[in-house]
Design a protein around this nucleic acid. Sequence first.
DNA 1: TGAAATGTTGGGGCG
DNA 2: ACGCCCCAACATTTC
Length: 476
Amino acid sequence: MPSPVLVWFRNDLRLADHAALGAAVATGRPVIPLYVHDDEPRDGLAPGSASRWWLNGSLAALDDSLRALGSRLVVARGSPEHAIAGIARESGATALHHHRQYGAGDVAAAARVHNALRELGIESIEHASSLLVEPDAITTRGGTPFRVFTPFHRALTTLVQDASAMVSLPAPNAISSPSRWPRSIALDELGLQPDAARSATLGARWNPGEAGALRALEAFAARGIGRYAAERDHPGRNSTSALSPHLRTGELSPRQVVARLEPHPDSSAFLREIAWREFAHHLLAHHPSMIDTPLDERFASIEWRASDEQLDAWRMGRTGYPIIDAGMRELRETGWMHNRVRMLVGSFLVKDLLAPWQSGAEWFWETLVDADAASNAMNWQWVAGCGADAAPYFRIFNPVAQAERFDPDGAYVRRWVPEVEGLSDRLIHRPWTASPLELAAAGIDLGRTYPEPIVDHAEARARALETYRRGLAMHR
DNA sequence: TGAAATGTTGGGGCG
DNA sequence: ACGCCCCAACATTTC
């Protein structure tokens, strides 16, 4: 029996368009698919609770799919280099295939694995397939990494037009097994599952796993991508793709998404969002510190001032601004939030409450099923104004104006903030302006059944401008 | 992938 | 008929 090759699964929990698996299968040798769960990564972020729930479902689905092909997923816990070296020794493997990832912790972990295996005389082969274009394959005319989205997007589009670069690999139809499988722990032992009630809530909303991902992609394509272009900013309509958690875990590759949707004439608005995802990974690859440090260092001395009570009101959806509370409650219940509302709650936290963007990023990391280190850091820095090509600091969203513009009939707010559902469309986004009579008619006792606004937006806006101006002035 | 303040214009009411 | 004022509606500037 020839010696086996290992395939290390990370954020690529699929069988189709999987370059590392494809290469391993192509060797004609037995293949050992494996996953290593590191509870305490030395450098990098352990997944939050919503992500862990998703990961559990995705790994179970991957194991099922592998078993249908006569293979299985070997699961280990601990540091990747230790676990993988152990499996390599035990199985007599001669090579490891895996995909490249872009965060500092992921890069460091891969380097440690490579070193550990080299000492055992085992070759490691890193493949690219989590992005449309590798971060070092796309540069400005001057050869430097892009820092501005629009030119990045233009360059990316040009590269993606070359259709041959976008060919995606079919899933293997058979995977040969080693004569003996190395030891594996049961998925349950990873302790990824939250309590039963939480699992049930999330399970009612999502289908983790490659099959669920492909169904979601088909559903989005069938629903009409034209509707996305027209309605994507309206959180009350279900017009977004909700593909983010599938992309985050790599149940779906961006190439597959582009191949499926690009031929459609109205796809450009959606593909632009895919490009933002690419840009985030591009930035993270070139600026690993952006996870917790402003890309624009002038923003390091802003005097944040939010209290724990305010932060808690934000997290729990009790700010008194219905659109903000709707978003935060959708997040807490479903592990997801509509993109437009993410911008609004982000602006509210960072500008109206003057809480550090990192505190928002931490909560999102803990609660989002699509929590992605690159996108999370980039987008929070965008909101705070301290990122590359970020929103200017004086761009402060008005939660009422935005709500009236993008949730004009209050459908989104009524779904998530039932306390105020009895208010008219005119008042639904601003309960504090309702007369006592109108409040009584809607069954609202402001301050008791639903909070008064925790800040006055007009005052908060002025305070944010002043605070930012002062912080930036220190870096003249 | 804003919002608010400020400036400009033009129509209509009115003396 | 005319000037004056008011104020939408739109444009520009500022944060």
